[in-house]
Write a protein that binds this DNA or RNA. Structure first.
Lengths: 219, 219
DNA sequence: TTTTTTTCAATGAATACTCATTCATTTATC
DNA sequence: GATAAATGAATGAGTATTCATTGAAAAAAA
C-alpha cells in the first residue's frame, strides 16, 4: 500500500539454546495477531486490539512489523514454511503412494487441528488470494505439487486410476480436505478432526457410487 | 453497527409487466456493488466507488440500503433465493437420483459461470461466515439438504454406497465443487466451467482408486 | 388548459469517527 | 552514562453516514 522502507532490522527470530522458539516480542505479537484475526477477521481487527492481546504498546508492533498487512504476510510466510515441512515429511516417510496419500491428508488435518487460530485465518482469509498474499498461493501450489506427485506415483504403482484429469483431481482433493477443516472450524473445533482422515481417504479412493454403475448415464 | 431505524420504506423491487426485473436504482446499485466487491473485496471497496459505478450519488445508496453491510446482506438474500430455485428445479426435473446428482452439480457450475462477480463474492467473501451473514449459512444449509436428499435417495435406489457417512459426504461434495469454481474464478474465468461437471461427477462416484485396492491399508 | 402547490427522490458537501502510523519521551539494558 | 527498546498520546488520512438543498414531476387549483 505504501512504500517499503524498513528503518530498522527486523526479523530477529531468536532461538534459545534448546532450539525452542524463545517467546520474544515478535512471536508474541504474531500469535496475538492471529488470535485477533481469527476472532474478528483481518479488516475488523485493529492494531490496538492486537497490542492489548500481546501485552505491548501499539507502537511496539511497528518495531517488528512494517505495517498491518505485514503481520499477516509474516504469519503466512512463517506458518507456510513450517507446515510444508511437516507435509513433506509425512509424504517422505511413507513407502508406497497409498500410504503417502493417507499420511498427507492425516497430517494436514492434524496440523490444522493443532492450531485452530491458524486454521481459521487460513480458511477465512486465504480465499481472497489475488493481491495481498503470493505466500498463500505458494502454500497452495506446494500442496498441489506434492499431491500431484503422490497421485502420479500412485498411477505408476497401479493404485490409482490411469484416466485421471490430474489438475482437476488435485484441486478437488484439496477442496475436500479444506471443506472438512472448514466444517470443523465452524463447529467450534469440538470433535476430533484427525479421525476424519480415514473416512475421507476412503471417499477419495472409492467414491460414493456403488459397484460400476455410473449414475445419470444410460449406457 | 448502529441502531436500526429505517426512516423510509425501502425495498421497492419493481417488476414490470413482463415479469422481468426493472432496472431500477436498487438493482443498479446492487449490481454495481457486487462488481466493485468482486474486484477489490468488501472491505477495500468504498461507498463512493460503488456510487460511481452505479452512476448515482453517494447519498442515494442510503435511500436503498441501511449501510454498507446491508448491501452485501441484500445481495446474499436476493441471489441465494434465486439460485436455490434453480437448484431445486434441476433436481426435481430429474427422474432418478443419479441424474439428480449430475443435474445439481451441472446447475451449480452453470449458474456460477453465468455470473462471475457473484461467484467471486461468494467464494472470496463467503468463507468468513460467522457473524455478518446468516443468509450465507442458509444457502449452504439448503444446498447440503438437497444434496443429502439426493444421496439418500441414491442409496435407496442402490446407486450409491450404503456405508456412507452422510454429513461428511455432503460437505465433501460441496467442497469439491467450490474448489473447482474457485480455481476457475482464479484463472480468470477463461475456460468453460460447466464442462467440468462430468469429470467431477465421475470423481465423486468412482473415486480415484483403481479396482478395489484400498491404498495405505495392509489387509 | 394553464398555473400553482406539494412531494419526495436524488444530490454531494459537510460531518463525525475510526484507526494506522509516527515520534518525543520514558524505561530498560549493557 | 550510553545505547537500545518500548511506550502511548497525538496526528491526520480515509471514508461511512448525514442532511439541508434542489428540481422534476404529480396533484390541486385556477
Amino acid at each position: 500500500m505504501n512504500e517499503y522502507s524498513l528503518k530498522k532490522k527486523v526479523v530477529n527470530m531468536v532461538l534459545d539454546t534448546n532450539g525452542k522458539e524463545k517467546t520474544d516480542k515478535h512471536h508474541k505479537i504474531l500469535e496475538a495477531a492471529i488470535k485477533v484475526f481469527a476472532e474478528q477477521g483481518f479488516f475488523r481487527s485493529t492494531i490496538s486490539q492486537i497490542a492489548k492481546e500481546a501485552g505491548v504498546a501499539d507502537g511496539t508492533i511497528y518495531l517488528y512489523f512494517k505495517n498491518k498487512d505485514d503481520i499477516l504476510l509474516q504469519f503466512y510466510s512463517y506458518k507456510t514454511r513450517k507446515i510444508f515441512n511437516k507435509f513433506r515429511e509425512a509424504v517422505d516417510k511413507a513407502e508406497n503412494s497409498g500410504e503417502k496419500f493417507r499420511n498427507l491428508i492425516r497430517c494436514h488435518l492434524r496440523e490444522f487441528q493443532g492450531d485452530r487460530n491458524m486454521a481459521v485465518v487460513y480458511i477465512a482469509e486465504a480465499r481472497k488470494g489475488q493481491h495481498l498474499d503470493p505466500l498463500l498461493d505458494e502454500l497452495t501450489k506446494m500442496y498441489l505439487d506434492v499431491l500431484g506427485e503422490v497421485v502420479e506415483q500412485g498411477q505408476a504403482e497401479g493404485l490409482f486410476r490411469k484416466d485421471l484429469y490430474i489438475s482437476l483431481v488435485k484441486r478437488y482433493i484439496l477442496g475436500g480436505v479444506e471443506a472438512i477443516i472448514s466444517t470443523w472450524v465452524y463447529a467450534g473445533g469440538k470433535y476430533d478432526l484427525e479421525s476424519m482422515a480415514d473416512p475421507l481417504v476412503d471417499l477419495f479412493l472409492r467414491g460414493i457410487g456403488s459397484n460400476d454403475v455410473v449414475a445419470g448415464e444410460t449406457p
